[in-house]
């Protein structure tokens, strides 16, 4: 059994994702237990330099023009060969728009077990274990990573990206890509994020609304509160998908990461995709009627009241405090 732990590095337009470093940190935990090496697998086109700060024992770099953009088809075919050839003890992917397109495909193709939503890993009694966060952050699932090879999809939060960064460039070996001239999935163009009237990533006070806002008419209550606080309104995915707020106001995995002085989470449950984008907020205050909402595990202060009742009252109190 090959004791090495492979990490599929995620990068886009010349930048390695923070999650890739998190995965390298997790891989080190596993490699320490198996006695194997941490091998970073980097598929790319003219991006050899991205390997320089990866905390890996070795980088397997596979160069091909088809990797200039992310194509699930190109990644699937190439990684199928890599895993078949090396059969490492575990292969780590991001539970992301990149890893999500390849890991479950490879698991099916190669008939290998797969664990998703994995936050941390550890070894106990010579068994490798995973801890995953499921059910919108309301449940943890813990289990084994069976040998000889298990695929793992990782979410952020369990390790700091700095733990996966190295000061010295690791050894780099080159691999070859299979024929990739008939790809079924290709990128036509990129559509840049819309530039809105405000950049929520730079705001000091965010009044952020979730499903608890119930309908579009109630957004006005949040707008009024944000106005007296001197902040702006942002929202979680369900609110944006309903069209109640523009996509520029989305806080979360597919939107913006924010770092305000005050993040007032109103009717937001705190699903992992949302939580990962607010971990740098200075102070989180959460209001939710559900006492089991995971947001309360992250917030400094909380209250279990209905946001629709609270918002107008709080607006009035803040106004009074301001002497208005």
């Amino acid at each position: 059994m090959n004791p090495d732990i492979f990490v599929v590095i995620e990068h886009l337009r010349g930048q390695v994702s923070d999650l890739s470093y998190v995965m390298l940190a997790a891989a080190r935990v596993l490699a320490n237990a198996t006695g194997g090496k941490v091998i970073a697998v980097l598929l790319g086109h003219d991006v050899e330099s991205l390997a320089r700060d990866l905390a890996a024992d070795r980088v397997l770099y596979i160069e091909h023009a088809a990797f200039a953009d992310f194509s699930s088809d190109a990644y699937q075919r190439t990684l199928e060969n890599v895993i078949k050839e090396h059969a490492p003890r575990a292969v780590l992917f991001g539970d992301t728009t990149i890893g999500g397109d390849v890991a479950a495909w490879l698991s099916t193709r190669l008939n290998l077990p797969l664990v998703s939503a994995c936050r941390t890993v550890y070894a106990a009694d010579s068994t490798l274990k995973f801890v995953s966060q499921i059910c919108g952050g309301k449940m943890m699932a813990e289990g084994e990573l069976p040998g000889p090879t298990t695929l793992v999809m990782m979410v952020p939060g369990g390790y700091k990206p700095e733990q996966g960064r190295a000061a010295q460039a690791p050894e780099l070996v080159r691999g070859t890509a299979p024929a990739l001239d008939d790809l079924r999935v290709t990128v036509n163009e990129y559509i840049e994020p819309a530039v809105g009237d405000v950049d929520i990533a730079k705001e000091a006070i965010l009044v952020s609304v979730g499903r608890g806002i119930q309908n579009q008419d109630n957004i006005e209550l949040a707008e009024e509160l944000a106005k007296v606080l001197g902040g702006v309104v942002s929202g979680s995915r369900p609110v944006i998908d309903q069209g109640w707020l523009p996509p520029t106001r989305l806080v979360g995995k597919s939107g913006k990461s924010v770092k305000p002085r005050l993040y007032l989470a109103l009717g937001i449950s705190g699903a992992p995709e949302h939580v990962e984008a607010i971990s740098n907020a200075e102070m989180i205050v959460a209001i939710n009627t559900d006492p089991a909402a995971p947001i309360f595990n992250l917030a400094k202060f909380g209250a279990q009241v209905d946001i629709l009742d609270l918002m107008p009252v709080l607006t009035e109190y803040v106004q009074q405090a301001r002497g208005g």
Binding site: L12, S17, D69, F70, T96, T97, R184, V185, T186, V187, N188, E189, Y190, I191, E192, P193, A194, P247, T248, L250, K253, S254, G255, K256, S257
Partner: peptide, 16 residues
């Protein structure tokens, strides 16, 4: 198809 990447970036992709 429009595929979402982090930060609001979208890739317009051609899928056979």
């Amino acid at each position: 198809v429009r595929k979402e990447f982090p930060g609001g970036l979208i890739a317009e992709m051609r899928v056979q």
